[in-house]
């Protein structure tokens, strides 16, 4: 039951830019089990998307990966050659991006875009589909993404569809190749609240029906809460806390998680507490010890010298903070 699907260990990613090297990801470690829904929470620039790009090996040219162990179903992703990577991306892992408008090519009809995805995904599986079979499969996928009149959608250009429909098309395309893992990178953030709600409910229903694993990346805590089984919290390129969803929201441990949860305006009112003071550290010269030290109210001498390791605070609730364990 508890089979590990994806295992990322001590992933480091740096970027070479003007003036030096941005040390963005600092020993990111995370696992995703089969059929598991995992959330990755963090604010903008904390490295959520970089982590995902590193996993499917689509980092930009100026990225440096000094250290990484990434295993997908036991296979070392870092050692895969081009054809193995192609196979991974075409038939195992797929990604849904934040902005569906940018993810679709504006000059091609949906038909042309989804047909290619369906065709190559099946080719990797050793199935060479005919045109007619591809069309049937595409329509089935669009219908699965709850798009009405899929035949009409096929003959539309992206600009003829609303934002919500475009994101559904992206989901349908991702489903074609995501047999084992779906990575949804802020899938509803660029959409309206009512549409985001629909998209998230749809995604949840689909992954549960298909028994696919999903990593849901979001800065919106509420969106993650109603969706996933387990949550990772990321701050400045480090995983600072991981726990089952219920535990994280009811008993957050890391000072950052606590601050983040407190800063969200509540529907029940009561004003807005002070947010987290200070700003995210400079990735070019990050603090030697804990990266949250510049903003932490509990900062201790040891936090300056040592980087906290993830410790188990019981009940599979892990936290990287010297306030706990050891």
């Amino acid at each position: 039951m508890n089979n590990t699907l994806l295992n990322v260990k001590e992933l480091q990613v740096h970027f070479k830019v003007y003036g030096g090297i941005l040390k963005v990801l600092n020993d990111v470690t995370l696992t995703v089990n089969e059929k598991e829904k995992v959330g990755l929470i963090g604010e903008s620039g904390c490295g959520k998307t970089t982590t995902m790009k590193a996993i499917i090996r689509i980092l930009p040219w100026n990225a440096i990966v000094p250290k990484a162990k990434i295993y997908f179903k036991g296979k070392d992703v870092m050692k895969m050659n081009d054809s193995e990577l192609k196979k991974l991306r075409r038939s195992s892992i797929s990604m849904i991006f934040q902005d569906p408008t940018a993810a679709l090519n504006p000059v091609f009809k949906i038909r042309d875009q989804i047909f290619d995805v369906v065709k190559y995904a099946n080719l990797e599986m050793g199935k060479n589909l005919s045109k007619k079979e591809i069309e049937e499969e595409a329509i089935r996928l669009l219908r699965e993404a709850a798009l009405p009149e899929p035949e009409r959608i096929l003959d539309s250009y992206p600009f003829q569809l609303s934002g919500g429909m475009r994101q559904r098309v992206c989901i349908a395309m991702a489903l074609a190749s995501a047999r084992e893992l779906l990575i949804a990178d802020e899938p509803g953030t660029s959409l309206d609240v009512t549409i985001e709600d629909q998209i998230l409910r749809l995604l949840k229903q689909i992954v549960e029906e298909r028994r696919t694993s999903i990593i849901l990346i979001s800065h919106a805590l509420g969106a993650v809460k109603g969706f996933v089984d387990r949550v990772y919290v990321m701050y400045a390129g480090c995983i600072v806390e991981s726990a089952r969803t219920f535990d994280l929201f009811h008993e957050p441990l890391h000072p950052y998680t606590k601050g983040l949860l407190a800063a969200v305006p509540k529907l029940t009112g009561g004003g807005i507490p002070e947010g987290i003071k200070g700003r995210v550290p400079d990735y070019m010269n990050p603090p030697l010890g804990c990266r949250f030290i510049t903003r932490c109210v509990h900062a201790m001498p040891i936090c300056e010298r040592k980087q906290p390791r993830m410790v188990n605070a019981g009940n599979n609730h892990e936290v990287a903070c010297f306030l706990y364990g050891e």
Binding site: T194, G222, V264, K266, L267
Partner: peptide, 17 residues
């Protein structure tokens, strides 16, 4: 509809939707 769509983080809020 809008209120029911908002992602929230506490149980008290959930009860309000």
């Amino acid at each position: 509809m809008l209120l029911s769509s908002i992602p929230v983080i506490t149980d008290e809020e959930e009860a309000m939707k």
